[in-house]
Design a protein around this nucleic acid. Structure first.
Lengths: 148, 148
DNA sequence: CTTGACCCTCCCATGATGGGAAGGTCCACA
DNA sequence: TGTGGACCTTCCCATCATGGGAGGGTCAAG
């Protein structure tokens, strides 16, 4: 199977298949005499695994680990679960950050008339150059939004 | 005020100040005889505006627009509100995507024993290569996670 | 034998950010 | 006056996953 067909049946673009090969996520594909990559059904399954993992937000590095566990029939499921849990924590952290941004903005937008007049609490907030006098406990990551 | 001082009082790194200048987000800073950038209190206020906007997740492109509105005393607040609302929608979309990923993974992890045994519903799901027979209505962006 | 659909590699761009090298400037202190 | 260290400058590189495109080879059907 050529790369185009492998791409179609796995949902991974040809560009990305080549990229995954180049970074060692998948092993170099077999080549035909004319130097075309040749994929087996097994390779395509691997690509599908990768595709699905990407859809769940795993990084290529995490997928490297997941793939090695997938191939290892004597893996302890503990390891898989650990990767998944860590990723969920990461997602939750980022969600909370973005949620804080969205909430702040929703509040500001709600307070903004949104008409022809120039007065705007959104701009007022953005130009609010003094930090609150008493910073709260040091935030783990970038503090997403100021409490209002 | 040199760039280091401007950086400290605005919270924007020197690297980023130079970058913002290079992409035209801020106008080129004045220079001293020795070619050092020189910042006024006004410039620093602008940097603080940028910093805060970045903290709310606005892109440099959006901030370009916000800054021009900020400087325009006859702006209609409608425009500011529109930018904010669009950004909130964008955030909400990304949050929903990530939430779907996290929920799926939480579910799978919950079903995974997480012990020494190799059986693992997480890997099983990832290698689940058949797409559901009846796809739902076409998702607006990348569909984040399959319904389980 | 031509045409069009493939495939190959290599380079570039994205967005916001940091690292670091090589070299110039400034100030305070000996 | 010299010097060391803290600053500043520009330029290049890396990140992460992804796509675009150029320039050129391969293949199969007509």
């Amino acid at each position: 199977m050529n790369i185009g067909q492998a791409s179609k049946s796995s949902g991974v673009s040809t560009k990305m298949i080549r990229y995954y090969e180049s970074v060692g996520l998948i092993s170099p594909a077999d080549r035909t005499d004319s130097n075309y990559r040749s994929f087996s059904e097994r390779d395509v399954n691997e690509l599908r695994f990768i595709k699905r993992s990407r859809n769940l937000g795993f990084s290529v590095e995490e997928i490297t680990h997941l793939l090695s566990l997938w191939r290892d029939r004597s893996r302890p499921s503990r390891e898989v679960k650990a990767i998944a849990k860590k990723h969920v924590e990461d997602l939750d952290g980022r969600i909370a950050e973005m949620q804080a941004m969205a909430d702040t903005l929703r509040h500001l937008a709600h307070c903004c008339a949104g008409d022809d007049r120039p007065d705007c609490p959104i701009l007022a907030d953005l130009s609010h150059n003094a930090e609150p006098a008493e910073p709260r406990a040091k935030p783990t990551r970038r503090a997403a939004a100021r409490a209002w």
